[in-house]
Design a binder for these strands. Structure first.
Length: 484
RNA sequence: CGGGAUGUAGCGCAGUGGCUAGCGCGCCUCGUUCGGGACGAGGAGGCCGCGGGUUCGAGUCCCGCCAUCCCGACCA
């Protein structure tokens, strides 16, 4: 009965799938490459959404909703954009029983339809900046899919802003990247590298793409969020101009930025273990579960005791639905419940039975280390609150230490290759690079490693160094990794 | 798009041309249990992926199709 989770050491990829399915986060749908997000997975997404949504609003953005279907011609207006997305488009050719005059594409991202609308809405510098976000689903026809990390349809948020100056747009791009970094580190407990994407890795249609990159437990990198400076590319493609203070006409400057349900994949792969999901308390839909241990003869007394403590904990942690759960189910044994709640990643488990009742104690078990502690019942709610904070910090520190242990600097190409060699190979490897895309492609072919990010301001640090791939003067200190 | 695998009960699987298709888990009922995935008894549950063919007889053999998963190339 115990649905086992494949240990990470046996197969990281099977482990990941087992976590997702056994913790009931998602399930395969009948359509290839798409998935159903189940209530536990969706609750997690709602936590992510709620937090980010607040952060977006605090930085001045408003939500809106743009339609799913986009005229095919819109995509074609921006040359690089269409080229980048053409292979991934789902196209609707029929509607209402008849063939459409112009096919519609299901949005792979919404720049085009949004900029078609911005053209109508922006006339003057007084209309700027325009700061809009939308929560939506998008479809990208992927050849190879993986639950949460890459599915044909996924949920995300996409911010689209319009500005009167380049400086302001660049500032916005960086601001939102910083929002993502803060969110990843403080809520997801996942440390991230930030920086610029290389030319070949950037978003189709962007001038610059900034990203946050996280290291997973298998030493592969995961791009967890992107923020794009779009320059005037879309403004020009859609002819969006505004009248400036001096009365002249300028094209609008743009940004876009997004994170997706992929973040759930990042959470799983950053923290979870062979016993199941491990969630950072700030995002855990359920932070604590109370498991009473009773038999028929003492059921009432124990449940009474448990319920009293449960109510006290609720007062401390909040009464939000499911934030604290009392598992008084009679069908399953305590041992079964322990394993089950560990599997689904509840950060703190409160065990209490007749012995605890006698001593006015409870047992607290933290999910991250699985350590038990015995505390006075009256002190439990406050201690749980502390524990949640400790777990949050511990997860971050563990992930940070892991990243540090797996971050290297390569001085020669041989050394570089050695870091990515074999089963245990991987991590972030920094190397001086001359900026040549051909070399980047060759490295990818030979080692599977790609440039994840060019850390901000690292051109200066690269000064005087030699590109270890070409022998030419280095332009950047690039961070390489094998990536998802 | 290439390579590999798999389609039999809700899930995981067994089934060597021959009777009424099985096992484990889960599910339902009753009882006993209950401090790390309890036990007994009794039950319910099947278009054997789909379509052809061979055969007295096909889950099993042959042909075709479909689907999904995993691994690679392309991508958040």
């Amino acid at each position: 009965m115990a649905e086992k989770i494949t240990p990470r050491s046996t197969s990281y990829s099977d482990w990941y799938i087992d976590i997702v399915t056994q913790a009931k986060l998602a399930d395969y749908s009948p359509v290839k490459g798409s998935m159903v997000i189940r209530p536990r997975g969706y609750a997690l997404w709602e936590k992510i959404q709620g937090t980010l949504d607040r952060m977006f609003k605090e930085t001045g953005h408003s939500n809106a909703y743009f339609p799913l279907l986009i005229p095919q011609g819109f995509l074609q207006k921006e040359a690089e954009h269409v080229e980048g997305f053409a292979p991934e488009l789902a196209v609707v050719t029929h509607g209402g029983g008849a063939e459409l005059d112009e096919p519609l594409v299901i949005r792979p991202t919404s720049e085009t339809i949004i900029w078609a609308m911005y053209k109508k809405w922006i006339q003057s510098y007084r209309d700027l900046p325009l700061l809009i976000n939308q929560w939506a689903n998008v479809v990208r026809w992927e050849k190879r899919t993986r639950l949460f990390l890459r599915t044909t349809e996924f949920l995300w948020q996409e911010g689209h802003t319009a500005h009167s100056t380049k400086e302001e747009a660049v500032e916005e791009t960086k601001r939102m990247l910083d929002v993502y970094r803060t969110f990843a580190e403080e809520y997801m407990a996942v440390p991230v590298l930030t920086g610029v994407k290389s030319e070949s890795e950037k978003f189709a249609g962007a001038v610059d793409t900034y990203a946050i990159e996280a290291l997973m437990q298998d030493k592969k990198a995961l791009q967890a969020g992107t923020s794009h400076f779009l320059g005037q590319n879309f403004a020009k493609a859609f002819d969006v101009t505004f009248q400036n203070k001096e009365g002249g006409l300028d094209h609008v400057w743009a940004t876009s930025w997004g994170v997706s349900t992929r973040l759930i994949g990042a959470l799983i792969m950053a923290h979870s273990d062979d016993n199941g999901l491990v969630l950072p308390p700030r995002l855990a839909p359920t932070q604590a579960v109370v498991v009473p241990i009773f038999k028929t003869s003492n059921k009432e007394q124990v449940l009474d005791y448990a319920n009293g403590i449960f109510q006290e904990i609720r007062k401390t942690l909040g009464t939000e639905f499911n934030r604290v759960i009392l598992d008084d189910d009679e069908a399953n044994s305590p041992g079964w419940k322990f394993a089950e709640w560990e599997m689904v990643g509840v950060p703190v488990r409160v065990e209490l039975g007749p012995r605890d009742m006698e001593n006015k104690k409870v047992v607290l078990v933290r999910r991250d280390t699985r350590e038990k502690e015995f505390v006075d019942a009256s002190a439990a709610p406050a201690r749980i609150k502390e524990l949640l904070e400790e777990i949050q910090q511990n997860l971050y520190q563990k992930a940070l230490a892991f990243r540090q242990e797996n971050t290297f600097a390569a001085n020669t190409y041989d050394e570089f290759k050695a870091y990515f060699d074999g089963e245990g190979g991987g991590g972030f490897v920094t190397a001086p690079w001359n900026g040549d895309a051909g070399i980047e492609a060759k490295i990818k072919e030979e080692t599977k490693a790609t440039i994840r990010v060019l850390p901000f301001g690292n051109e200066e640090q690269a000064l005087g160094k030699t590109c270890i791939f070409s022998g030419e003067p280095a332009k950047y200190l690039a961070v390489f990794a094998k990536a998802y």
